Simulated scan of single mutants.
Amino acid sequence: MRIVVTGATGFLGGVAARELAGRGHMVTGLGRDVERGEALERGGVRFVRADLRDQPDWLPVLNNADAVLHAAARSTLWGRWADFEADNITVSRTVAQACAARGLRLVHISTPSVYNATGLWQNVPESTPVGPRFDSPYAHSKFLAELEVTLAHPEATILRPRGIYGIGDPSIIPRLTRALRSGRLPRLVRGEVHTELTHVRNVAHAARLALEGSAPGIYNVTDGEAVPIWATLDALADALGVRRPVRYVPAPLVERVARVAELAAHLHPARPEPTLTASGVRLLTRPMTLDLTRARTRLGYVPVVHPRRGLAEVLAVVRA
């Protein structure tokens, strides 16, 4: 199969592109980072430098494709709405329309962050009503992107992987590492909080199943087993050789402080990302597990990396 992967110089896109190529597919990766593109070429992926905002530059690449994995996105809890709209909503609409016009299979990467404002935390199914409130511009933009994709390409597959991590993760582990090394991260809960994460190879596996099969609709994707957030933070602190978070500060108080920091950042001309965000606090204090029944039955999804193994690999790299 001839597959185009957008965001191929990113974390998920790069792993997925290499794994698809390793399975014998002819993969073309789109991205902006030339150095990472050269690394993709060495891994058997044809690289095309492209900014997805510039439609004429990359649309012809789709003419020789059978399917598209749209993994490119602005994935951050902080930023300007205009950028989220351009990168997540407008680009997703363009990709979906182009795939529909050419009769290409489309797998679109979204996020279960769209559930965060629903008040549901345990075994959340894809049928959960979402909106009109969202807890971050990122979640809002990704939900609107889902609507655009579904409208333009009703046969598209939409994956909602929870908390993508793994070796090379540019987001979760680096942010937690900075917080732990600063020594300013308090213990936000008295007990433990369990949540689900998704190893990057499990997301790539789910995407491959969707590309090789025919499974329109929305699918939750996780490692299939909840992990303890604060025990994992303690293990990360040990791997880094820094002090574990000990001093208890109630989460609601820290969230209020974070909101003040966000307001100050919004008022700053450069709008720098604050060290602490309300959304970030909630990720450490609210449980979240997802119902995987649909992915298991319709995609045949079974995680290929267990969370204990995946986290152990990451901690080993941190120690090194």
Rank of each mutant, 00 (worst) to 15 (best):
P216S: 07
D135K: 09
T195D: 03
A152K: 01
T177H: 01
A295H: 00
L104I: 09
P60D: 07
A237T: 07
E19S: 08
T118N: 13
R201A: 02
A215H: 15
T150E: 15
A21G: 15
L188V: 11
E126F: 12
R308A: 14
P228S: 14
S92C: 09
R46E: 10
L20C: 12
P125H: 07
P129G: 04
R102H: 10
P112H: 01
G310S: 01
I173M: 11
E273K: 14
T289Q: 05
T76G: 04
A226N: 04
D291I: 03
V95L: 00
G14F: 04
G7V: 08
I164E: 00
P137V: 05
S214Y: 13
L315Y: 07
V317L: 12
S113Y: 02
P269N: 11
Y248E: 09
T6K: 03
V48I: 14
D291M: 03
V314C: 02
E225L: 13
P303F: 03
V48Y: 02
L69V: 08
I167S: 03
S136E: 03
A152V: 01
R49K: 13
Y219D: 07
A265C: 07
R184Q: 13
F11V: 06
L211N: 03
F84Y: 15
D238A: 15
A156V: 06
L283C: 01
V304D: 01
S75N: 14
L52M: 09
S171H: 15
S110E: 09
V68Q: 11
L197R: 10
A264L: 15
E273A: 15
E85R: 15
A156N: 08
T76V: 13
L62C: 06
I158D: 04
T222F: 13
S110W: 05
R244M: 05
A278F: 05
T293C: 06
P129L: 04
P170N: 10
D87W: 02
R175G: 02
T222I: 07
P245T: 06
P161Y: 00
L52Q: 01
R181N: 09
A320N: 11
A207C: 10
R286H: 12
T195I: 14
Q55S: 11
N220Q: 11
I229R: 05
H199Q: 09
V318D: 04
G131F: 02
R160H: 13
T297W: 00
I89V: 15
E262C: 10
R181Q: 15
V305E: 12
G191C: 11
R190Q: 08
G131H: 02
A239G: 11
G14E: 05
R190F: 04
T293R: 15
T76Q: 13
L77C: 02
E192S: 07
V114N: 03
